[in-house]
């Protein structure tokens, strides 16, 4: 015990002696700093110009998800509970889409930060999202007033849309205007919907039980999509054209999506 203490003291003394030499961060820090930040900007450009796909997964933070138009092929859904890290369970719909295309994306999360108070995190990509969606009619223009174009099947045409494969969303509520939904099967046993749609539920999430309510859809096109979502889980990759990540003080909502996208 005594020996350990004297050793500690000796080490502290030698450290203090060593501390007499002036050491610190030298100016050469600029080299990796500039290199790193330039590469980061480069990566950001690659992601926002559609070349590089990023991995984006969240679990227990609820955020609002808005899109002008969702075009999905081969989707399946069932009801489940979502465990958050706080221990509370929420009833959610697990929705899996094999391949999806989104006309604009605006994801909003709120966070309380010490000192600053409430801040809003906004992830914006694709064409601007409208400030509000009218229920009961399809969304035909984006947030900047430019028209969205569709073909006869309700498929999105034109560029700058977000594509995602194996997109899984668990939402407390999802709303929108269904535009040409086909091949719908409501009330299929929940444990078989994934094989019908050709997807695999992500490991770790609540798995469906036989006999529970499930649904499958061949083509699902939804205009003016809004939802309270706990998790977006991408097993595949997502391309995010015109990506913007913003942290804004104060409480922002869907109404701020087009203005923030324009800035």
């Amino acid at each position: 015990m005594n020996r350990a203490r004297s050793q500690l003291r000796a080490r502290a003394a030698s450290m203090k002696e060593e501390a007499a030499t002036r050491r610190g961060t030298r100016t050469r820090a600029v080299v990796p700093l500039a290199g790193g930040l330039c590469s980061l900007i480069g990566l950001f450009q690659l992601v926002s110009s559609d070349v590089l796909a990023v991995n984006f997964t969240t679990a227990n933070q609820e955020f609002q998800l808005y899109s002008n138009y969702l075009q999905g092929e081969q989707a399946a859904g069932f009801l489940a509970t979502n465990d958050t890290s706080t221990g509370t369970d929420n009833g959610v719909t697990e929705l899996g889409i094999r391949s999806a295309k989104l006309a604009g994306l605006c994801a909003i999360a709120h966070e309380n930060v010490p000192v600053l108070g409430e801040v809003t995190l906004m992830i914006i990509a694709g064409v601007p999202v409208k400030s509000a969606f009218s229920n009961g009619s399809n969304t035909t223009t984006d947030g900047a007033g430019a028209p969205l174009t569709f073909d006869a099947n309700g498929q999105l045409t034109g560029g700058n849309h977000i594509t995602a494969s194996n997109l899984f969303v668990n939402s407390r509520s999802l709303s929108g205007f269904g535009n040409k939904i086909s091949g719908m099967n409501l009330g299929q046993s929940a444990d078989t919907v994934d094989t019908t749609a050709g997807i695999t539920w992500p490991a770790g999430q609540g798995q469906p039980d036989a006999g529970d309510f499930g649904l499958t859809v061949d083509r699902i096109n939804v205009g003016g999509l809004g939802g309270d979502t706990y998790g977006i889980n991408l097993q595949g990759a997502i391309t995010l054209p015109n990506l913007k990540i913003k942290v804004i003080p104060g409480h922002k909502t869907q109404a701020d999506c087009p203005t923030q996208a324009a800035q």
Partner: peptide, 21 residues
């Protein structure tokens, strides 16, 4: 959300450049 990457780059550069002045 970008913040971690920026902090990591700053921290890593400072670590690399630390030394006798």
């Amino acid at each position: 959300y970008l913040l971690g990457s920026v902090l990591g780059i700053v921290g890593g550069s400072m670590m690399w450049a630390w030394g006798e002045k």
